[in-house]
Every structure is written in structure tokens, then in C-alpha cells.
């Protein structure tokens, strides 16, 4: 019996840690898609970029892990800002199809560029010794790094909640997601707001890529491999809803991890079926506005 509880706790810790990575990577995507209705299939590319920045700094240049993680955020944000200004900004108001194609194009380019620079094989990040141990819960040991991820995820969620709920910029973002035309009519520059949000969201993706490199290995095809997962978080949670993204990430992380452990023969089948059922039940997602 205790072993069952112990297993459950282990699965839960792993599942939640995994969920936090999904949340950190997808949060920005949710806000930007909610804000501009822009379908960005290349979002994972920024996470991949952040992941490569961090692992290059740590593995090749022996930069301390915390600094590398901050650099991953900065790298993701800078890349996001650049791509948004030069390419994406031309496509606001264009059809969904154009946005889909354009962002698939960006995904391909980054994928090829990453393979050229970092090679085609998946890479893992060398964690510092203080994060590689185990924490003893009395009846079970859990990996320190997983606990660290959970704490980091909750801090990120709290920070985003604070930023969106308690700051002026956050209020503008909420207003613009809610009713863009109204927000513009009261003088909010939605385009600039979007650039800013996009850069922040890409930075978060970079952060998530770096922190999650131990779970979701960084490889050139990262952006395609996990695309469906990021989109599930965003669409099931509801576009533009951080709360929705958090809940969806938790559900997805725990169910996917637990499902693959308990019913490996089903694989990801259950996840996709659950996504389809959720979207048929609530087409705008759990926390989205219809």
C-alpha cells in the first residue's frame, strides 16, 4: 500500500514538474494568440533557442546554471522581438492560412539552422551538483531538480499573475484581449503592446526550454515534436487565459505522464481524445470566452 502511495507521489511530482515546463513555454503563446488571434506554430522554436543558449553556455563555456537560464530568457525574448518586428508584424489581419504557412516556414528555418549550428542529435544540459540530488520525503526520495522545477513553475505563475493582474501594462493586456477595438479606442497602442507581450512570451518560452531541457531534450525538431502539446495547453485552457493555461498544463502534464506510466500501451492516445472531447464540449477552451 505504501509503495502504491509512494509511486503515486513520484508520478505526481514528475507530472507536475513536466506540467510546469509546458506552462512556462506555453503561457506566452496563449497571451499572444489571445491578443492578436495570431496563430504562431513556431512558438516552440523560441523555447528550443533558449534551450540551446543555456546548454551551450553551461556545457561548453562552464557558465553557472542560473546565469545561463537568465541568458536563455533574454535570448528567447530578443529572438522573439526580432522575428515579430521583421516578419510577423506584416501578417496581422491576414488570414489564418497565411499565418499557419508563415510560421511553419519559420519553424523549418530555425530547425535547419539549429541542426547546422548544434548538430542533429538531441542534447541534454549538465545540471549543477546542487540540483542533481534527491530530496528525502521520509517514505520516498524525489529528484531535487523536479522539485526545483515545480517551485520555479509556481513562481513563474505567481509572477505572471501579478504582472497581468496588478500592473498597468497587465491591465492594458487584459483589456486588449477582452476587446481589442475598445482598448484601441481608449488609447492603448495594441501593436506595441503585442510586440512587448510577444517578446516576453518568447522569453518565457526560452526560459521554459532551458529549464525543461532535462525533461524535453533539446533537438532541432523540438519545435515540431512538442508543438501539439503547446497547442493543447493553449486551446484547452482557452486563448488568452493564463489561468486556463495553468490548469490545462497541469491536467496535461499529470495525465500524460501518469498515463504513459500506467497504461503505456495507450501512449498519447488518451491525451488527444481528451483534447478533442474538451474542445467539442467547450470550443473556446476551459477558461476561454466563447
Amino acid at each position: 500500500m505504501t509503495s502504491a502511495i509512494s509511486t503515486a507521489v513520484g508520478l505526481l511530482v514528475d507530472g507536475v514538474a513536466y506540467a510546469m515546463i509546458l506552462y512556462i513555454v506555453s503561457a506566452g503563446l496563449s497571451v499572444t494568440m489571445g491578443l492578436m488571434g495570431f496563430v504562431n506554430l513556431a512558438h516552440g522554436a523560441f523555447a528550443m533557442f533558449g534551450g540551446y543558449v543555456a546548454l551551450t553556455l553551461v556545457n561548453a563555456w562552464q557558465v553557472p546554471f542560473p546565469i545561463a537560464v537568465v541568458a536563455a530568457f533574454a535570448g528567447g525574448a530578443a529572438a522573439g522581438f526580432l522575428v515579430e518586428r521583421t516578419i510577423y508584424a506584416r501578417l496581422y489581419g491576414a488570414g489564418v492560412l497565411d499565418q499557419v504557412l508563415m510560421t511553419i516556414g519559420v519553424l523549418f528555418i530555425t530547425m535547419a539552422a539549429a541542426a547546422f549550428v548544434w548538430g542533429p542529435l538531441p542534447q541534454r544540459i549538465a545540471l549543477p551538483s546542487y540540483l542533481t540530488g534527491q530530496i528525502d520525503l521520509g517514505f520516498r526520495q524525489v529528484p531535487t531538480y523536479r522539485v526545483f522545477l515545480i517551485v520555479a513553475g509556481f513562481i513563474a505563475a505567481a509572477g505572471l499573475w501579478f504582472g497581468l493582474d496588478r500592473t498597468r501594462i497587465g491591465a492594458c493586456v487584459r483589456a486588449a484581449v477582452d476587446n481589442r477595438r475598445m482598448a484601441e479606442s481608449v488609447g492603448i497602442d495594441v501593436r506595441r503592446l503585442f510586440s512587448l507581450t510577444f517578446a516576453l512570451g518568447s522569453g518565457l518560452a526560452g526560459l521554459g526550454g532551458a529549464l525543461g531541457a532535462e525533461i524535453l531534450a533539446i533537438s532541432p525538431s523540438y519545435g515540431i515534436e512538442y508543438l501539439v502539446y503547446f497547442l493543447i495547453v493553449v486551446s484547452v485552457g482557452g486563448l488568452g487565459s493564463l489561468r486556463g493555461a495553468f490548469v490545462a498544463a497541469l491536467l496535461l502534464g499529470i495525465a500524460d505522464h501518469g498515463g504513459k506510466y500506467l497504461l503505456p500501451e495507450l501512449g498519447g492516445f488518451f491525451i488527444y481524445a481528451a483534447m478533442i472531447a474538451t474542445l467539442l464540449w467547450r470550443p473556446a477552451g476551459l477558461f476561454g470566452r466563447a
Partner: peptide, 21 residues
């Protein structure tokens, strides 16, 4: 019965589900 982004996601999910099967 759905539209726009939701429909896009559902087409993706149906294919992903069959792929997994």
C-alpha cells in the same frame, strides 16, 4: 460544428490520435 482556431486544433488532434493508434 466548430470554427477557426478550434477547428484547426481539432483537425490536428484527430490526426495525432490516429497516428498514436
Amino acid at each position: 460544428r466548430t470554427h477557426g482556431l478550434t477547428l484547426l486544433m481539432l483537425t490536428l488532434a484527430v490526426a495525432a490520435m490516429l497516428h498514436e493508434i
